[in-house]
Amino acid sequence: MDLDVFVAAHQAEWARLEQLLGRGRRLTGAEADELVALYQRTATHLSLVQSSTPDPMLTGRLTQLVARARATVTGTRRSGWRDAARFFTSGFPAAVYLTRRWWIPTALISTAVGVLVGWWIATHPEIQNAIGAPEDLKAMTKPGGGYETYYSSHPAASFAAQVWTNNAQAAAICLVLGGFLGLPVLYILWQNMLNLGVGIGLMSSADRLDVFLGLILPHGLLELTAVFVAAGTGLRLGWTVIDPGHRTRRVALAEQGRAALGMAIGLAAVLFLSGLIEGFVTPSGLPTWARITIGVAAEAAFLLYVYVLGGRAARAGDVGDVERADQTATLPTAA
């Protein structure tokens, strides 16, 4: 396609569309019909330019023009409580459900790594000595030591807020940096499993593994599940860079990126709940069985939420992306 000839042929239509969009008064019926027709034509022109001669300046101009015309034709849509309700009852659980083939293997492999690290540390005294001096390790693992007092070292509210912030940040990093082929995600997973393994190993060597599990399970089940979901989503985003499927890489990354952004919001709410459990339940005076029961119940509720609501929404066609009306138009691609 000769770009100069194309611009010369359609310049008058674009100028007329800009004129109609720039009017401060209400359009007449004829002018409104003309604006809709010019909007549709200009959108077609933009698709042709993007597919055959992607000139940056012309593409930018037509993209801006089409966006302004679309906003005028369709009106500005404001988000409200209905959108929030739809997100938490359909979009977010559907996105988690659809990424289960990524985060479930991530959870299983990561947990296995954490347990192996813990076993390695527990059965090798020389590794324990490399972690810290014997008196320091004893101070951490003894009754009333560092591992036990950690959860009650600060007021419950401030501790819960601090935990939530740290975990939400880790989850966000997994989601945002997943596009770098998933490598930052693997690093964050390793750091989390290494910390878990060290705790398992040191407390097991002191014959106090039951105490450690009683402290970690109430909040850790839901907390680690959220981290695994974020990591699985990040790895999926990284794989999209390598293999976008039948879509163009730009379209595939845009779709997965929007879903990941929504996932970050949803997981922040999940981690807020786990932070409350860690701040108020874990250090409480409740019996160990009661604290663990609360953690198991929270985990079970989340999995039911994902598999019941999320599965139903996914089967209805929801993929966790923004509504179709809010998506940018894409070019058709061959399957």
Results as ranks from 00 to 15, higher is better:
residue 1 M to E: 05
residue 10 H to K: 14
residue 10 H to L: 06
residue 14 W to N: 11
residue 15 A to K: 14
residue 18 E to A: 13
residue 22 G to N: 06
residue 23 R to I: 04
residue 25 R to V: 02
residue 27 L to E: 01
residue 32 A to H: 13
residue 35 L to E: 00
residue 37 A to E: 13
residue 40 Q to D: 06
residue 43 A to H: 06
residue 45 H to V: 00
residue 46 L to W: 04
residue 48 L to W: 01
residue 50 Q to N: 13
residue 50 Q to R: 15
residue 53 T to M: 11
residue 56 P to E: 02
residue 56 P to Q: 04
residue 57 M to F: 09
residue 58 L to K: 09
residue 58 L to G: 07
residue 62 L to H: 03
residue 75 G to Y: 08
residue 77 R to V: 12
residue 78 R to M: 10
residue 79 S to E: 12
residue 80 G to A: 04
residue 82 R to T: 07
residue 82 R to P: 00
residue 85 A to Y: 09
residue 93 P to A: 05
residue 97 Y to P: 03
residue 98 L to W: 03
residue 100 R to S: 12
residue 113 V to H: 02
residue 121 I to N: 03
residue 122 A to M: 09
residue 124 H to Y: 02
residue 127 I to K: 06
residue 130 A to W: 03
residue 131 I to T: 02
residue 145 G to D: 02
residue 145 G to H: 00
residue 146 G to V: 04
residue 148 E to Y: 03
residue 150 Y to N: 04
residue 154 H to N: 10
residue 156 A to P: 08
residue 161 A to V: 13
residue 166 N to K: 14
residue 171 A to Y: 04
residue 174 C to F: 12
residue 179 G to F: 06
residue 182 G to A: 12
residue 185 V to I: 06
residue 185 V to F: 08
residue 186 L to C: 07
residue 189 L to G: 15
residue 191 Q to N: 15
residue 194 L to K: 13
residue 197 G to F: 08
residue 200 I to W: 08
residue 201 G to E: 03
residue 203 M to T: 15
residue 204 S to I: 01
residue 206 A to W: 02
residue 212 F to C: 02
residue 216 I to T: 05
residue 216 I to D: 00
residue 216 I to H: 00
residue 223 E to D: 05
residue 227 V to N: 07
residue 229 V to Q: 06
residue 229 V to A: 10
residue 233 T to H: 09
residue 237 L to Y: 07
residue 238 G to E: 00
residue 239 W to P: 00
residue 240 T to K: 08
residue 248 T to C: 05
residue 253 L to S: 00
residue 258 R to L: 10
residue 259 A to E: 13
residue 262 G to Q: 02
residue 267 L to I: 15
residue 270 V to G: 06
residue 272 F to P: 02
residue 274 S to A: 15
residue 274 S to C: 12
residue 283 P to D: 06
residue 287 P to F: 04
residue 288 T to S: 12
residue 291 R to N: 11
residue 294 I to Y: 01
residue 295 G to T: 11
residue 297 A to F: 07
residue 302 F to T: 11
residue 302 F to C: 08
residue 305 Y to L: 09
residue 308 V to D: 07
residue 309 L to H: 10
residue 310 G to M: 10
residue 314 A to D: 05
residue 315 R to N: 12
residue 316 A to Q: 13
residue 320 G to M: 10
residue 322 V to W: 07
residue 332 P to A: 04
